[in-house]
Write a protein that binds this DNA or RNA. Structure first.
Lengths: 172, 172
DNA sequence: AAGATAAATGTTATAACATAACATGTCGTC
DNA sequence: GACGACATGTTATGTTATAACATTTATCTT
């Protein structure tokens, strides 16, 4: 069984070069923080890197466990402060419906996106969904509602999982 | 100051007959549960009524405090079970970004709606937003994503508050 | 009506998520 | 080197939610 699991992880990793995702995210973050004159400290970098270890949404206490080998003094506040910073800088999304956090590819640009959350592989996909946003803006204008922030989270089954694992999709 | 507060509450109550909201919600719930052959028990009814006491999203432990005079044995599970039932039946919405719950006007019909959450008065407005939903459906079809559920939550300032209290809107 | 079954609630305990408040350290600037 | 701003360390606690098992209540069957 261990072998199967490892194999599956391997397979999903092979689909794209994930180390590239991580280094891209870190580079972009460093650059953005430089421009903005804010500090991407070691802890903040480590938390960002841990979040980017997968495309799944990660829980705060999971991050805490995973940062401990690197920061033995880490406490909940350590993580939550780093998360607050990363969210402020638009480097990660908070997934409200999961109480979890996921790396943001759209850093710097418009940050509010559709989040597509797969029940099978648990990965979160961002979609800028320009048309959707425009329609929402129109709807809110009609309601005379002044927007501060949006959370648009869709749960379901992603393209990969619905084609690759039709049996599992029946069970969910 | 007490007088001012009471006056404000009075004013907001006067804007619509809120007892009607509550009785409507309870009647509709009773009818729906009857048709569906599920039990709208005393506890469930009380929780629904408590949620409908305002148009604000209410926290679970707030409900727990408020139900205790009626159900002295109430514990967290009492509330969460009732909430689970009411959500299953589409009688309330869970507001993911607030960890709170609000009465649903659209019970029975399509349940997934835009939730407009006002930072000033804290009231939650539902909008069926047909166009928005259609656009989202199209976007998700393009992404080959099979939807199970949607949470679309907009935070900002409602029409009432942005016209009535321009000073406060500056502070938020 | 008696007994079987399913549904709801009671009860205890604990898990999971998040923040407050104050102390200490680090770094740039005057 | 004193100061201020920011980041982090540290302790404690607040808030949200569920698990697991016992008991009661409702419903169905005969």
């Amino acid at each position: 069984m261990d072998i199967d699991i490892e194999f599956a992880q391997e397979a999903s990793k092979v689909e794209h070069d994930h180390t590239l995702c991580v280094t891209n995210a870190l580079n972009k973050a460093e650059q953005l923080c430089g421009v903005r004159g804010v500090q991407l400290t070691t802890i903040r970098q480590q938390v960002l890197a841990l979040i980017w270890e997968s495309h799944k949404a990660v829980k705060a206490y999971e991050l805490l466990d995973r940062i401990k080998p690197l920061q033995s003094a880490a406490k909940p506040a350590t993580i939550y402060r780093a998360l607050d910073f990363l969210i402020e800088q638009g480097l990660i999304h908070r997934v409200e419906s999961l109480n979890a956090f996921v790396g943001c590819r759209c850093s710097g640009q418009q940050h509010e996106q559709l989040l597509l959350i797969c029940k099978v592989c648990e990965e979160v996909e961002e979609r800028s969904a320009v048309e959707v946003m425009q329609t929402i803006v129109r709807e809110l204008a009609a309601a005379h509602f002044l927007v501060h922030s949006k959370a648009i989270e869709i749960h379901g089954i992603c393209a990969k999982c619905s084609t690759q694992q039709p049996v599992i999709t029946q069970l969910v």
